Amino acid sequence: MLQAHGFEVVAAVESGSELTTSLRELEPDVAVVDVRLPPTHTDEGLQCALGARRRRPGLPVLVLSQHVEQLYARELLADGAGGVGYLLKDRVFDAEQFVDAVRRVTAWGTAMDPQVIQQLPARGAGADRPPARLTPRELEVLELMAQGRTNTAIAARLVVTERAIAKHTANILTKLGLEVSDDDNRRVLAVLAFLDHGR
């Protein structure tokens, strides 16, 4: 599927050790990794990908999982850098959605599975709500932001102006206490703050 959409696949591996070796030796533009790999079949793929990102900061990684695990999403986003994605394996069957996620991650964006984000607002009663008290529209914008969408794409999706989305985004960042910084990807940090609330 990736080759059919113009990607060059430099390696396909079957174990954590092979993944670690390939990421180190081949230095790919992006790694698409299954969370569960032999020999442990637990979270070895994720741990190998995180280790590779520590050795090569910013290595774009798209992790595939059978089930929604918010911890995996938090671990991926923990360094505050872009170039990360977390999708359910079912998304691979939607070629357009899967390829779009790979491209966004390769371009140092973020691609989070909608089901990860959708689970969080449902918990939002009382003390479990984000302390910033995001409005329903701001939560909607943050959900789309977590999927790696730009302000232009979010505006098109919600059928509002880009200026309105810029205002919502600014409000979200302010409410989450994310000050202006040249060093941090504030959109990624906003998503991380939101995911952290799902603990």
Rank of each mutant, 00 (worst) to 15 (best):
M1Y: 01
L2G: 05
H5F: 10
G6E: 02
F7C: 00
E8R: 11
V9I: 01
V10R: 09
A11C: 01
A11N: 01
G16S: 03
S17L: 10
E18S: 09
L19S: 02
L19E: 04
T20W: 02
T20M: 00
L23G: 00
L26Q: 09
L26H: 02
P28Q: 01
D29C: 04
V30W: 01
V33L: 02
T40Q: 15
H41N: 11
D43A: 13
D43V: 11
Q47N: 06
A49Q: 09
L50K: 05
R54Q: 15
R54E: 15
P57R: 11
L59W: 01
L62G: 04
L64T: 06
S65H: 14
Q66H: 12
R74C: 07
L77H: 06
A78C: 02
D79T: 00
G80N: 08
A81T: 14
V84C: 07
L87R: 05
L88C: 07
L88E: 13
R91G: 03
Q97I: 09
V99Q: 12
A101Q: 02
R103V: 13
A107K: 13
G109W: 07
Q118D: 15
Q118H: 14
L120W: 08
L120I: 14
R129T: 12
E138H: 06
V141A: 09
L142T: 01
L142R: 01
E143I: 09
E143R: 15
L144M: 03
Q147W: 04
G148N: 05
R149G: 08
A153I: 08
V159E: 13
T161S: 15
A164M: 11
A164C: 05
A164Q: 15
K167D: 10
T169I: 01
A170T: 08
I172S: 00
G177H: 07
E179W: 06
S181N: 07
D183N: 15
D184Q: 14
L189S: 11
L192E: 07
A193L: 07
L195I: 15
G198Q: 02
R199G: 10
R199T: 12
